[in-house]
Simulated scan of single mutants.
Amino acid sequence: MGVSYLSSWRKKCEDSEKEKRIRFGQKVRELRKEAGYSRQEFCELTNVSYEALERIESGHVDPNTPNLETKIQKGLTKSYMVITI
């Protein structure tokens, strides 16, 4: 009885964490696109590798990874002055 309860509890936690990663990745992709950045541009702004951004957006990276949320927020709030000649 105890072992099956523990197994089902562990499975529920794993599913919950997976859903959290997927939602986070979807939100990052959505915000990046709303800001008008390509993946490459966003990588340069956030100092996150292209491969890491792909993993984030596909839900394979824990959003609690140190500094990840901070890097993404900074990338989404940066603005650049455009000088035309």
Results as ranks from 00 to 15, higher is better:
47 N>C: 08
51 E>D: 12
59 G>R: 01
44 E>W: 08
42 F>K: 03
41 E>W: 01
69 E>Q: 11
40 Q>L: 12
55 R>E: 10
49 S>T: 15
39 R>Q: 15
70 T>D: 15
60 H>L: 09
43 C>R: 03
51 E>Q: 13
52 A>H: 11
38 S>V: 08
36 G>T: 07
53 L>Q: 07
63 P>M: 06
45 L>M: 14
55 R>M: 06
36 G>D: 09
68 L>F: 06
57 E>P: 04
59 G>V: 02
57 E>N: 07
67 N>E: 15
67 N>W: 14
64 N>M: 07
63 P>G: 12
39 R>L: 13
41 E>T: 06
42 F>N: 02
42 F>Y: 10
48 V>Y: 03
64 N>F: 07
57 E>H: 03
50 Y>E: 11
46 T>R: 03
65 T>L: 13
61 V>D: 02
45 L>G: 05
40 Q>C: 10
69 E>G: 08
46 T>Y: 02
54 E>C: 09
39 R>Y: 09
58 S>I: 00
64 N>H: 11
55 R>N: 11
40 Q>P: 04
64 N>K: 11
59 G>M: 01
42 F>E: 05
54 E>L: 07
44 E>Y: 08
66 P>M: 00
36 G>Y: 06
57 E>R: 04
66 P>A: 05
60 H>N: 14
43 C>L: 05
42 F>H: 04
58 S>L: 00
49 S>N: 14
64 N>W: 07
70 T>S: 12
40 Q>I: 13
39 R>A: 10
50 Y>G: 10
69 E>C: 01
56 I>P: 01
41 E>L: 00
41 E>A: 04
39 R>I: 13
43 C>E: 08
53 L>A: 07
39 R>P: 03
41 E>V: 01
51 E>I: 08
57 E>K: 02
36 G>M: 04
38 S>H: 10
36 G>K: 07
45 L>H: 14
68 L>C: 05
41 E>Y: 01
65 T>G: 11
51 E>T: 14
63 P>C: 09
52 A>T: 13
47 N>E: 13
43 C>V: 03
45 L>C: 14
55 R>K: 10
49 S>D: 15
47 N>Y: 07
